[in-house]
């Protein structure tokens, strides 16, 4: 839980993925030997058509999906091989933001944020809602930072989509993570709210030097916020580079067809 200086942490916060393969059915790989290194800074956007394995890739990193083969090196251990307590401790260092927000609807906003601390606080204290004072203080600070300071005691199901996703981002930051994974964080939101959500994610992670890996459908949003774009197609990486290097030819290769580009 010790906070390292950003510069020193950068090295610690990188992800090295080697030959990652995932088959939901034997012989039909969704991910075909992905190898990529994600440096411990900035926003990396993964774009690509639906069903190409973007979500599977991100979920393999924190093991919501178990990879079939390959390595995911993070802070000196191979995430692909962890289990039990070791896996839970590694997951504490990896925040996640979901497309459908995945808040606990019937809990208050503040308690949803504190859910980000469940990996650190002993369960008998969470049972009686006796979270450490510094966690509660941090939660209130983050609520202010995402503009929901007045909503602490509202129930999550009373919020709008954009507000819920802000809570989702704040919950991920509550973990004090060394990397944030975001799986289509804006796909359920309108265009204006999508930009606001990406701004908040970018700002909060940037201030703390936390690298963000984000799956995103919207190529313009990806170009606007990411310092690096990874284009996935057919279970492999079809493009990897800065936003400026992403050409129409690349997009045609990634998504197929070209009528949609007009």
């Amino acid at each position: 839980m010790n906070m390292q200086p950003d510069a020193a942490a950068a090295a610690d916060r990188s992800l090295v993925i080697r030959n990652l393969t995932k088959e939901y059915r034997a012989g039909q790989p969704v991910l075909k030997g992905i190898s990529v290194t994600i440096e411990g800074r900035g926003v990396t956007a993964i774009i690509g058509p639906s069903g190409t394995g973007k979500s599977t890739l991100i979920r393999c990193i924190n093991r919501l999906v178990d990879p079939t083969a390959g390595e995911i090196l993070f802070q000196g251990s191979d995430l692909a091989k962890l289990s039990g307590v070791e896996l839970r401790q590694a997951r504490r260092r990896i925040g996640m933001v979901f497309q459908e927000y995945n808040l606990v609807e019937r809990l208050s906003v503040i308690e949803n944020l504190l859910c980000g601390r469940l990996g650190y606080v002993p369960w008998w204290r969470t049972l009686t809602r006796r979270f450490p004072d510094e966690d509660v203080a941090h939660a209130f600070e983050l609520l202010d930072a995402v503009g929901l300071g007045d909503f602490a005691t509202r129930r999550a199901d009373a919020l709008s989509g954009g507000q819920r996703q802000r809570v989702g981002i704040a919950r991920a930051i509550m973990q004090n993570p060394d990397v944030i994974l975001a799986d289509e964080p804006t796909s359920s939101l309108d265009p204006k709210t999508s930009v606001e959500i990406m701004e908040i994610l970018d700002r909060l992670a940037g201030e703390r030097g936390i690298p963000v890996v984000v799956n995103i459908h919207n190529v313009d949003l990806a170009k606007r916020f990411a310092s690096r774009i990874i284009g996935m197609a057919r279970g492999t990486i079809a493009f990897d580079g800065p936003p400026d290097a992403l050409t129409e030819a690349h997009l045609i290769d990634i998504y197929g067809g070209e009528g949609w580009l007009e």
Partner: peptide, 15 residues
Amino acid sequence: GPIEALTAAGAPPFA
């Protein structure tokens, strides 16, 4: 969804 979120946060089974 919420179960996935808590799992991803490293919450122990009882939590």
